[in-house]
Nucleic acid binder design. Structure first.
Lengths: 199, 199
DNA sequence: AATGTCAATTGACACGATGTCAAGAAACAT
DNA sequence: ATGTTTCTTGACATCGTGTCAATTGACATT
């Protein structure tokens, strides 16, 4: 009991820092986030952040883990697994994942950027993306089973294509660079996926 | 004649700087490239670099242009401009650009990896990608003029889609992560572009 | 040979960001 | 009341970009 309270108290400021970082990551899409910004948002001094995290990288990765705990992709994609037909499942999967991307985008950016210099970050990111690929694979397999898959692509190729179509990079390019509304993104990507994959 | 020699002499150091930057970008093993590194490689002082380029952004952008010149991207894409029909031009553009990507991948990787932490690198990269977008735009405009463009997409949307389909990230994902051969990449991307865009 | 021009050098400095350190204050459990 | 932990404050080292002024060296012009 004592230990529990102590660790809870101990984590209070740490949590405030993580939440502050999270909020800044989500709000701030262009500007760089400085340690001083995070500290101010958390209501502590810049130096105090270093009492909880070794450095900036450590903090950013800890934040991604924190968000991982708070938001799960699993719940989001449950709907797609419920769909009966292949095409229905394709649509539901694109909608579920496509609408999840903006929620993790702030974090995704950090992980993608860190991948060159940080093996752990790269692995965490690859892990997540492989889970998405498995979702794509399940959709493609169902389509193939139903004979709905375009015959010029093998099922592996089709999985690769869908996975690539649904990459976070593509979402960034279309919504951030090209200025597409989120709704348009989901609709047009769904349309493209059907045109490419469904026979 | 005098002017020619003068401008040639004038550009000598500038060229050395560009070549040095290029070599560092290609050789780079994850380390960030500083102005001092470029200067040393070019055999001049750090400050002297600023006599030829306004700032780091300017230098990086100039380097990508220099590489484009030496690698002959213009010549490669000339073939696409020569094609008479819209579809022919689409195919030629994808072939020209798609086969150019692997040649600039060394530089591209560094610029893309640096984009989060390095505003200058991001700007240099964005500048080049906008040039590709213009190529996509020309192709789409021709298709639309011929009435070959699928009617569910506006020409701007179609340009965005083609541009995204041809992104370096997609090339990396398909050829590096999914293990596609370069030839398969070009063929399958061409196929996808036709399915999505041609009515 | 003297002159002027231009490129480059040298050393110094401002600026902004990360990260460290030491001394003291404040919170808080016992 | 006391002692421990957390946080604050102010100072400082470090690193990279970009700027500036004074100076050197090469070279073309006259």
């Amino acid at each position: 009991m004592l230990l529990y309270i102590m660790s809870s108290e101990k984590n209070k400021t740490r949590s405030r820092i993580l939440v502050a970082t999270w909020e800044l990551l989500e709000a701030n899409e262009g500007n760089e986030i400085r340690m001083i910004d995070i500290a101010r948002k958390a209501g502590i001094s810049r130096q105090a952040v270093y009492l909880h995290f070794e450095n900036r990288t450590d903090l950013l990765i800890a934040t991604t883990r924190y968000i991982d705990d708070k938001k799960g992709i699993d719940g989001r994609l449950a709907k797609s697994r419920a769909a009966k037909s292949g095409v229905g499942r394709l649509d539901a999967f694109i909608e579920g994942w496509g609408n999840y991307i903006p929620e993790i985008y702030g974090v995704a950016r950090v992980l993608m950027a860190a991948r060159e210099s940080d093996i752990d970050a790269a692995k965490a990111w690859d892990d997540r993306m492989l889970a998405v690929r498995e979702g794509c694979e399940a959709v493609i397999n169902l389509l193939e089973k139903e004979g709905q898959l375009k015959s010029t692509f093998s099922s592996t190729q089709a999985t690769d294509i869908l996975w690539t179509l649904l990459s976070v990079h593509n979402w960034v390019q279309l919504t951030q660079n090209c200025g597409w509304a989120q709704e348009d993104y989901v609709n047009k990507i769904t349309e493209q996926a059907r045109l490419i994959l469904i026979q």
